[in-house]
Nucleic acid binder design. Structure first.
Lengths: 210, 210
DNA sequence: AAATATTTTAATCAAATGATTAAATTTTTC
DNA sequence: GAAAAATTTAATCATTTGATTAAAATATTT
């Protein structure tokens, strides 16, 4: 009732509690499979309160989604735009920070990619993702390395696909991989930790091979 | 009404038409976001008929899902169990056949991986996926190559993650990649076709690098 | 502490959706 | 070609689910 005039005065902890619960449930089940009642229960509040704070499931989802993508892009953009690091160091940083991030929140990659597929325009138009990556120091350095013959594969998009794919795919496919390889949670995590060291080595070898 | 006694006599084309429509809609939207009415409309039949043939949305889904996973595993298992091909040739075949398959049905990977995540037990227990891959000729050859020092990375699971990830990830992330790289559908497809040649080269370089 | 503003909830609504039923239509059998 | 079986449909039910409302509870102000 007092929302529109005084949004800034509302207890932030309740609003944050709902958002936190929404993040958890949305990330785990995706938009379509999520019930607003699940979020309310997870947050320990009544269903009506959720709509009081966020008007609708769709609006709450959009807020969570934009924050989630933002975290992802930010982590990438920061590493890729450091003037002080070399190309190889950038790869190492991206690999390490993403593997640590995703190990803490394993649902993140498949959540993001599924929901982006369902609604690419809504979610990607709003973020300056293209500029943040294609205009980065990283891509300038990549281009220089190609010019100097240090890298034989000239497409930066191929580079990006390989880097992100090698990082994220195992997490996306983890239920299947655990089954195939008969891996416990800890076995799987050990493999992911090993990949922090391996992926930079692999990437370097790949980019000189084609 | 006459279903249970004479299932084998039902017109296969109608049943198949419904399954075909279900495949299309489920693959595109996933289980939770799919409405049985969407499937009926796609198939050009009435909603009740869908339940007459398949009893429920869940049962229809399970049939589609098992077939879909089966296609995937089969394609992999066939290539990996050929006694006549070398390790490198197997990689080439897997890469080529999967890229062609997925280019025809781009929703396949993310559909499979999302739904497996939602219900790993139901879907993976029923298929002898572990045995089909871990007991394959491919893995014997991989082990031999490691023993002979031709491959320095000893874990076949890391090998598998890299191979499948390099193939499937770009399709999973395609909406985002198209946006980042400013790629039209045809640009993207061209990159995927290039990867038929590139991935085997990359894989070889990687496996000798670590 | 009374008055006012803010926060929270229980109860309810309306639309969407999975499923059923009984009757109509078409096909097959004899 | 009449009877029986199989197929298809329109209409309807029951549950789920997103959203609203009006009132109760709590906090804040004066």
């Amino acid at each position: 009732m007092a929302k529109s005039k005084t949004a800034e005065k509302l207890d932030a902890s309740t609003e944050e509690k709902i958002k936190e619960a929404a993040r958890t449930v949305f990330h785990k089940k995706g938009f379509a499979a999520t019930r607003t009642r699940d979020i309310a229960e997870e947050a320990g509040i009544n269903l009506a309160l959720l709509n009081y704070y966020f008007r609708s499931k769709a609006r709450l989802f959009e807020i969570i989604m934009l924050e989630t993508i933002s975290v992802f892009v930010q982590a990438m953009a920061l590493a890729l735009n450091d003037e002080k690091t070399t190309l190889g160091e950038k790869v190492e940083r991206v690999v390490t920070s993403y593997i640590d991030l995703i190990e803490k929140e394993p649902d993140l990659p498949i959540f993001m990619l599924s929901e982006i597929r369902n609604n690419p325009d809504l979610l990607l138009v709003k973020l300056p993702i293209k500029q943040a990556i294609m205009g980065s120091v990283f891509f300038r350095q990549h281009h220089e390395a190609v010019t100097q013959g240090k890298i034989t594969e000239p497409s930066p998009i191929q580079f990006l696909m390989n880097l992100i794919g090698l990082i994220m795919f195992p997490f996306i496919a983890s239920p299947m991989l655990k089954r195939i390889g008969d891996l416990k949670e800890e076995d799987f995590n050990r493999l992911m930790q090993e990949r922090k060291r391996l992926i930079p080595v692999w990437i370097e070898a790949m980019m000189k091979a084609s």
